[in-house]
Design a protein around this nucleic acid. Sequence first.
DNA 1: TTGAAAGCGCTAACAG
DNA 2: CTGTTAGCGCTTTCAA
Lengths: 332, 332
Amino acid sequence: MRRRVGITDVAAKAGVSVTTVSHVLSSRRPVSQATRNRVLKVIEELDYRPNELARSMRAQRTFTIALIVPDITDPFGASVARGLQDAVRPASYHCLVASTDAERDVERDILHRLLTRVDGVVLSGSGNTPEELEPVIDARLPLVLLGADTPGPGFDVVTGADHDSGALATKHLLERGHRRIAVITAPTDFGAPARRVEGYRDALTEAGLPADPALVVSAPVTRDGGAYAMAALMDLPDRPEAVICGDDVVAIGAVGAAAGRGLSVPADVAVMGFGDHEAAALVTPKLTTMALPSREHGRAAGELILERIRETEPGEPRRIVIPAVLVQRDSA
Amino acid sequence: MRRRVGITDVAAKAGVSVTTVSHVLSSRRPVSQATRNRVLKVIEELDYRPNELARSMRAQRTFTIALIVPDITDPFGASVARGLQDAVRPASYHCLVASTDAERDVERDILHRLLTRVDGVVLSGSGNTPEELEPVIDARLPLVLLGADTPGPGFDVVTGADHDSGALATKHLLERGHRRIAVITAPTDFGAPARRVEGYRDALTEAGLPADPALVVSAPVTRDGGAYAMAALMDLPDRPEAVICGDDVVAIGAVGAAAGRGLSVPADVAVMGFGDHEAAALVTPKLTTMALPSREHGRAAGELILERIRETEPGEPRRIVIPAVLVQRDSA
DNA sequence: TTGAAAGCGCTAACAG
DNA sequence: CTGTTAGCGCTTTCAA
């Protein structure tokens, strides 16, 4: 492999010192027009490109942000990656992305190996135990957690407005005249799904309606999960007129189950989803859903990191909340 | 920011030279058990982690592969990213990913800035003009093009078996007894879509059937595109019994258009898609489609790059073909 | 307006 | 078995 041309080659050929070459590149001190032109010409001729690695090493800055997600293949992770890049590219930062399959070991391993290669990390998924975060906090590396609820010492948070979006979905259904509203949620008692359910309950209460516990069922986040849960709901003596599903895929399963019993959506039951997946606009009826602007999550995370990098004194832990937006289509 | 602990700190505290520390880390030369233990203990105490950047600089190797795609947000790009990571992580390589929106300027800019930061690049999308590739090839950086048909000096290629998958889809329809088979393809005369259409024609010819040009129509790769094209096809005096769509989204539009005319799928017309998107299994009827194993594309690219990095002599340009696989569901 | 030289943190000859 | 030292390619004092 031909040796890459370095700053010394340019200096030699232009008959100046490396210092001067460096300065025509950085404009950090005046260089006579004549010298500058000569150097520029040589740079051109040699097709010289400064070695970023060496630069980073000097500057103690890598111009790279790490994004660690459970799976880049899922639409949320991918959008976040995109938003992150959107935010940091103008500042000449790159994004390193890694998928962990939510495995702790992999997460820790990747985190370790990345620590000295990046200027900040955006972490999404399970790795939120303080212990796992420790190395990056220790390293004084800007850290943003995605989807966690509260920031803490050494890390910021960007999260969806889960409570509000649950309430928003509920209010939409309320406005359409529905009174018995059910929820199919993911089988967890904490995190975003739980907060959405709370929002749903509060919206009901606010409207002076009872929150019937029988109307909150949990199901795996799959098509079949949605179908079974919906079937159960439809078998209720006093079946709900509308159901909010924790995910579009679940909603699609629910719509299928309704159709299977001769119920039409939204005439007989209204169905809402969460996420606004590609499929949401493709199925029949088109899904009314709460879009989670995941790209915004990524963008916000990127901006947060950039700020942290720039600030001299570590400020207060910060929290950015991204609201969900109602996308009204045909299913509710 | 507290100064990071370096190898010198460890050496000092352990009362040995940096060389020794380096060697207990790398095991590249024997170190007495006693010294080793002492050093290890200090490393632990100080929570020392070698600076990867400095390592890279010394080794002239960054342990990073760049992936440049039009949009990481689209399922193909994301899967490729995933496959790439799968392939290179065992070798301790990271992935830098960048989306270009298929804009030449962005692509060139990113490419330039990445050149000195990565050990190889995987490039997908439009940037395939020799001129744009030049900097990478010049830099003797392993380069893999995704979706390009033929490799060349300085770059390899991993591509789908486009001709074959067109033929495969056609044969599937032939086997189901269809004779008049139409195609809705993307509006380009080259690349993967064109090669698939050729495969379709050849399969027809091989079966002793005429390839009616009226049955090959082009449409934008959108739901509506598919719907309009399908409508046109259904208006033909002798309408086709089956249609192969260049993308699942198009197929979904086509199914909708068929339904709109009271035609049922697959009873009245069979419809096939390409891509096996998430939505393919979610719509009704579930789409029969050609899955493009994009993760495999990424994996293959990763392996190729790794090989190139390891090899001393630049070998022949290589080409890896990933077959598509028929996923039979309900629409054909 | 320009240069010499000291590192950034690490590895690997070369020397004991 | 261990240490001294010369860089990797760049930026930036310090000095002219």
